[in-house]
Design a protein around this nucleic acid. Structure first.
Length: 928
RNA sequence: GCCCGAGUGGUGGAAUUGGUAGACACGUUGGACUUAAAAUCCAAUGACCAUUGCGGUCGUGCGGGUUCAAGUCCCGCCUCGGGUACCA
């Protein structure tokens, strides 16, 4: 019989469930540890082998921490709102809730089979009213808050109103889009609508007209991070720019805190860098230019105020409010045509035509505030309305885009920075602009001769004194568009009275999704919720018809796990004070600019409200790599039904076709299975090599259409969950992308069978003895404990698995069947392979779960060696080995090495110049 | 374009951070057991040269450098993967 994983795994999975082994509560006698996986969106195709990779790693860590005496919170749930279920609903009429429920059930079955230590009593689902009540609640708090730049935190709108009533807004330093200054008197004279409109400019969740990423195919707007290269991330549909009234979150207010917070996080440098780039802080100055003949001024943002003397023209974004006003009559037509063209270009066009230089002269002139020189004002779409002030001063000599523009339209180029010790040259001879971050200012008035850094500081100082500008910081981070014109998401807890949005009373939450007849927009283009009957408050006011985006529900889910059944609050004070924040978070790095930013923002906001106790949600983050599929190909001879084996395909004119990897074993195709696969292959003929059909292969994304999906259920069926767990870890470093190849799973399976043989004989009789272990056996054990502990703490799970293999191989060689060795070994193995470990632990006579055992402690005394086998190298090349006592002095080691018989041939006829001895490492002889 | 990350046997990957390159597996080859197969076990397996035995040369993407010693550090390239994209 031997190792019967099927029986063992079912048995212990039941035992764990029935005895609630993974249920966890607050326990003040133990230190807490919070291990979290990014929860999955339950898709219709179920889990493939790539999904559990991170879950297995975090499960090993969670189990390890438990063995080390921590009270471990390790929950799981579902990111249940999402487009696929809704798209399916549109096609079939099946309610997305039904699809989602079905998919969750399948996910749960698959997850259960892998033997995770999740506390399912804490499961959350983003579409569960008990859960999204708090998503809606948080939205209301955002609506009722503003960001005070003086205190660098969110504060209640109610207090802001009090300030307005007392002194107006002049002294308020807020993250705001409010431009007009008003007095207390003016505030009081505003009507309700005007006041609400004003407050909207301060709220952290606010409604405003904004340029959005509109995706016609999905019928909704998308956030910036949901658009990749001008196409929607989901589905790859084209995205257009459109002006729409949308809910937004003022995440830009938190830009600096989001940036600063990164410094103290144990995240990979790459993901921190991605976030830093996304936030995009840049320091510089805003400078005010007068417009000749107008009272209006143009404010520009520049990171290089030291190049003001080189500004030879100005450029406004097509959307800039002054374009129309300042354009001279004879340019009107050209400019308005250009602006219309620029506005209508899709995102995609705009991005693909980056190199195309376009623009129009307005006919107006700006006046350089430092030099008094007149510079022409142009309109061009290389200047973005959404960044800085939507206007720039162009310094063609030192900016590549300005340079290209100046060359194209024949505008003057003046050099104002040069490299130290270099003579300025004629820009007309240049091929590109001169990047001058470390230079010396020339031809630049009072900063001439200064180094760039001090020149910038000096200009900022002077323009501030002169009142024509100031030092400023700009961020690339945009506010997050929070409305989706979709059905399957959280409804906004907002109603409209006279067109003004108001939040629902908290007692009205959760506001559940209404029923609709079909999941499509209305004829008039309103979102699906507008189809619902009676989508209004008790008083009859219409409710918001947009729904929230996918990242709404995932932004604060880690907090709800701490106290998932609380109906009084998001989570209790006691729970958050105990569990604090996530100690270890595992997930894919594709969430670098989305979820991980939103979630940090959400947490910081709740922190400002005094709800969370940590400023950052995820202390340590590990991004597991993707598992790629290994696709197989057959080669059809064109125009025939003949298939030629890989090695012979170059002799024919062939077409490459994906075949299902389940029919391929080590590149050899099961030709009979292939014939049965599809009717058109029934009469397939094969041109074989050595009697076999060899397939070609390539490593690519795992997907249905490539027939390379490996699902964990089949592998568990064949090898068991423990083998699957070990194999996924054995594949390679956790954070690295790697191809999936089922071939190697045999090796791991063999290891478990071999381990089993240490405990049982051929007739399944336990052969474990209570005999005292030998020094050699103790050494194997303690070496392994040390290695396993080290590897788990380093998240080096692949080397951990090989350490277990080495250990088992060595114990087999030693013929060791001793409890003193095997009992700790079963504990050691339990994080990786919990089922077999639990079985062995109980077979050894333990009646409690192995999860409550104590992780064994390795002791140095078993590891000490009396001798060390030195590699002896001559001029860096290893020539022979010599075993010497470890406590030998350097001089004696040197002597022993040089006197060794093998050494003579390398020394002969040469002079020994030097001998390097590194104790317990190496001996290197330098001989010439 | 800019910013990260990675290139090691036929394959996945190791290498205590500058100290025996290729651990552990897969695969392959040969052998044992078996009527046979599966399973299991044993041996070989970086390339090349030599071979009766000992052995030798080369080798971590490429080219240079530092060092007694480089997969690891420095300089310059190449290739692949990811992020970002007119951000002033």
């Amino acid at each position: 019989m031997g190792y019967n994983f099927g029986k063992i795994e079912a048995k212990w999975q039941n035992y764990w469930r029935e005895n609630k082994i993974y249920h966890v509560d607050i326990n003040h006698h133990k230190p807490k540890f919070y291990v979290l996986d990014m929860f999955p969106y339950p898709s219709g195709s179920g889990l493939h082998v790539g999904h559990p990779l991170g879950y297995i790693a975090s499960d090993i860590y969670a189990r390890y921490k438990r063995l080390r005496g921590f009270n471990v919170l390790h929950p799981m749930g579902y990111d249940a709102y999402g487009l696929p279920a809704e798209q399916y609903a549109i096609q079939t009429g099946t309610h997305p809730a039904v699809t989602t429920e079905k998919n969750i059930k399948r996910y749960r079955e698959q997850l259960d089979k892998i033997g995770f230590s999740f506390d399912w009593d804490r499961e959350v689902r983003t579409n569960d009213p008990d859960y999204f009540k708090w998503t809606q609640w948080t939205f209301i708090q955002l609506f009722k808050s503003w960001f005070n730049k003086d205190t660098e935190k969110a504060e209640p709108i109610a207090q802001l109103v009090e300030t307005f009533e007392k002194e107006g807004n002049a002294a308020v330093n807020a993250a705001t889009t409010q431009e007009e200054i008003f007095t207390a008197g003016q505030w009081k004279q505003m009507n309700e609508e005007q006041q609400q409109e004003t407050l909207m400019n301060y709220r952290l969740a606010y409604l405003s007209d904004t340029m959005v990423n509109w995706c016609p195919a999905l019928g909704t707007v998308l956030a910036n991070d949901e658009v990749k290269e001008g196409l929607s991330e989901r589905g790859g549909h084209p995205v257009e720019r459109k002006m729409m009234k949308q809910w937004q979150l003022r995440i830009s207010a938190y830009a600096q805190r989001l940036l600063d917070g990164l410094d103290n996080l144990e995240w990979s440098d790459s993901i921190k860098e991605i976030q830093r780039n996304w936030i995009g802080r840049s320091e510089g100055a805003s400078v005010i230019f007068n417009v000749k003949g107008f009272k209006d001024t143009i404010e520009v943002f520049t990171t290089r105020p030291d190049t003001l003397w080189g500004a030879t023209f100005m450029v406004l974004a097509p959307e800039h409010e002054l374009v129309d006003k300042i354009t001279v009559p004879e340019q009107k037509e050209r400019v308005s045509n250009y602006v219309a063209m620029a506005k209508n270009r899709s995102e995609r066009e705009r991005m693909t035509e980056v190199k195309k230089i376009t623009g129009e002269f307005t006919g107006a002139y700006g006046i350089n505030p430092l030099t008094g020189r007149e510079v022409p004002i142009w309109v061009a779409d290389y200047v973005l309305a959404g960044y800085g002030t939507g206007a720039i001063m162009a310094v063609p000599a030192h900016d590549s885009r300005d340079f290209a523009f100046a060359r194209h339209f024949n505008l003057p180029i003046i050099q104002v920075v040069t490299k130290e010790g270099e003579e300025p040259s004629d820009p007309a001879t240049w091929e590109e602009s001169y990047d001058s971050k470390d230079g010396i200012s020339i031809n630049s008035g009072f900063i001439t001769g200064m180094k760039t850094k001090e020149a910038i500081a000096e200009v900022i100082k002077r323009i501030e004194e002169m009142g024509i500008g100031k030092g400023t910081v700009n961020y690339r981070l945009r506010d997050a568009i929070f409305s989706r014109q979709r059905y399957w998401g959280e409804p906004f807890p907002i109603y409209y009275k006279n067109g003004i949005p108001y939040p629902l009373d908290e007692s009205e939450l959760p506001l559940k999704l209404p029923d609709v007849d079909i999941f499509l927009p209305t004829e008039t283009g309103e979102p699906p919720l507008a189809r619902a009957k009676n989508w209004k408050t008790k008083e009859g006011y219409p409710l918001e018809t947009n729904t929230m985006p996918g990242f709404a529900g995932s932004s604060g889910y880690y907090l709800r796990y701490m106290d998932p059944h609380n109906d009084e609050a998001y989570f209790s004070k006691e729970a958050v004070e105990y569990w604090q924040n996530v100690d270890l978070y595992l997930g894919g790095d594709e969430h670098g600019t989305g979820h991980l930013i939103y979630s940090r923002f959400w947490n910081k906001f709740l922190f400002d409200l005094g709800l969370t106790v940590k400023d950052e949600p995820y202390k340590k983050l590990i991004n597991q790599g993707k598992i790629q599929g290994r696709s197989s190909f057959v080669y059809r001879v064109k125009g025939t039904n003949q298939y030629v084996s890989y090695g012979l395909k170059d002799n024919y004119d062939t077409q490459e076709l994906h075949v299902d990897v389940s029919m391929v074993d080590g590149d050899v195709l099961d030709t009979e299975a292939f014939k049965k696969w599809r009717p058109e292959y029934a009469d397939a003929e094969f041109i074989l090599e050595d009697g076999k059909y060899y397939c070609g292969h390539v490593v690519e994304k795992m997907s249905k259409s490539k027939y390379n999906v490996q699902n964990p259920d089949d592998l568990i069926e064949r090898y068991g969950a423990d083998t699957l767990r070990l194999y996924e870890m054995f594949l390679g470093p956790l954070e690295q992308d790697k191809p999936w190849d089922t071939k190697g799973i045999e090796g791991v399976y063999r290891f478990l069978k071999k381990l089993w043989r240490l405990f049982f004989d051929e007739d399944d009789r336990l052969i474990v003895s209570n005999e005292k272990a030998s020094a050699a056996e103790m050494k194997v054990l303690h070496k392994t404990i040390k290695k396993i502990q080290h590897d788990i703490e380093q998240f080096s799970f692949n080397t951990g698995v090989s350490a277990f293999m080495i250990c088992t191989n060595e114990l087999s060689d030693l013929n060791c069947h001793k409890r003193e060795i095997l009992e700790p070994l079963s504990v050691l193995l339990s994080p990786y392979a919990p089922h077999i470990a639990e079985e062995l632990w109980h077979q050894l006579g333990n009646s409690e779960t192995v999860n409550d055992a104590v992780f064994p402690q390795w002791e140095e005394k078993y590891l000490v060696e009396n001798t060390f086998t030195y590699p002896v190298s001559f001029n860096g090349k290893t020539r022979f080995k010599i075993e010497l006592p470890v406590d030998l002095s350097k001089a004696d080691i040197e002597k022993a090495a040089l006197e060794a018989p093998e050494a003579q041939k390398w020394i002969e006829g040469k002079t020994v110049r030097k001998v390097i001895v590194v104790p317990k490492r190496i001996i290197n002889v330098v001989a010439k």
